[in-house]
Design a protein around this nucleic acid. Sequence first.
RNA 1: CGGGCUGUCGUAUACCGGUAGUACGCAUGCUUUGGGAGCAUGUUGACUGGGUUCAAUUCCCAGCAGCCCGACCA
Length: 412
Amino acid sequence: MKQSQLFTKTRKTAPKDEMSKNAQLLIRAGFMHKEMAGVYSFLPLGLRVLNNVVNIIRQEMNGIGGQEISLASLQKKETWEKTNRWSDGEVDVWFKTKLKNQTELGLAFTHEEALTVLMTNFVSSHKDLPFSAYQFQTKFRNETRAKSGIMRTREFIMKDLYSFTKTQEEHNIFYEKAKEAYEKIFQKMNIGEKTFVTFASGGTFSKYSHEFQTICDAGEDIIYVSKEKNIAINQEVFTDEVCSDLGVDKKECVEQKSAEVGNIFSLGTKFSDAHSLTFRDAQGKDVPVVMGSYGIGPARVMGVVAELLSDEKGLVWPESISPFHAHLISLKNDEKAQEIYEKLKKKGVETLFDDRDVAPGAKFADADLIGCPWRVVVSDRSLEAGGVEVKNRKKEESEIVSVTDLYEKIGK
RNA sequence: CGGGCUGUCGUAUACCGGUAGUACGCAUGCUUUGGGAGCAUGUUGACUGGGUUCAAUUCCCAGCAGCCCGACCA
């Protein structure tokens, strides 16, 4: 894309109503716009990153057999009453609304109920199981306090996958597969080394749930990391009993501030019991379906990446989710640059082409702020030296590469 | 939801009980082009409501909004 046609502009100064690094950088660089506290709109660059995150997750969800769907946000009261989650006393994040005829509706903050009810239409035999379904869908949560920029918002897209299995054993097998898929997802976005499978409080049907916690100062959780076991324990369950249960030495664990980037949860038959989601087993008996739920907030992950992988000049995207692979900068050599731009496009290299008539310094500063992995400068100086100047966003030094070798150098 | 802080051009800020200034941006022109260019001209502003006062953007109160801390958080 030509930068001259990009409607967003960068800003030199951070907005004064944002303290968090992720929001400051993402707004300065023109990735998103703040509508109000805890509500952000995504602009072209930001949406490209978000979509890249979504696609990585989608690939892994498909990899474990997830079938993509999209459920409605508007949900009826009766569905939630069966699991006692309609009352504001029980759930304090509700956004509720009404039809013209005064019928009450809720804007879904999660979809266990809706999907369980839906599945009663399709699950009847043991032959129908197991399977899983997932979506990327807007969730509404009336948080008492939105905070940390994009990391805790009132409206956000969530990837939520739900598994439906015949037995607890069958559930456990899927649960482990989901856990592995999650690990791959965070590795692909270059936050794998700082992300730990974290034991957290379970629920009625399992002793623990697993959170994926990324060490990050902007996070809201406190975890205790066991380097030896490569796991962590959430502060809420960090007791002697749990430590011995998991075989970790409590004294060796290191306290860290962290952000929850994902969680996986065994639901047992809580929802299938409430909504009569059963199947007929081989003996002709009706048995409740065993369920699990698995969430990731793509925008929060994007925020964590912005927090962790940025530097004083701006964002530093991993190649896997960068809005563009290359940032091509023309310094008064538009014709040659245009030629290279076309060549890169033909090769399938996603390129942001800075064809604007602005000072070189401004172009460099914008390239650093936007944070694409490869910067390619075309100028008299570079052409005299034999080609274009290539610089990786993570490195200080640059090198001259001939136009013919450019794809070799930066191609994926 | 409790506590604290803050609301000034599009953005970031300054000053002030009496004429609101600067920088960036934006517009026009000329010059300029390897780290956010220069000159000139122009452009735009006191959250809302009430109170005190001769006079309020400034002081007081309320509302609204934003941020931070805490509580809450499948």
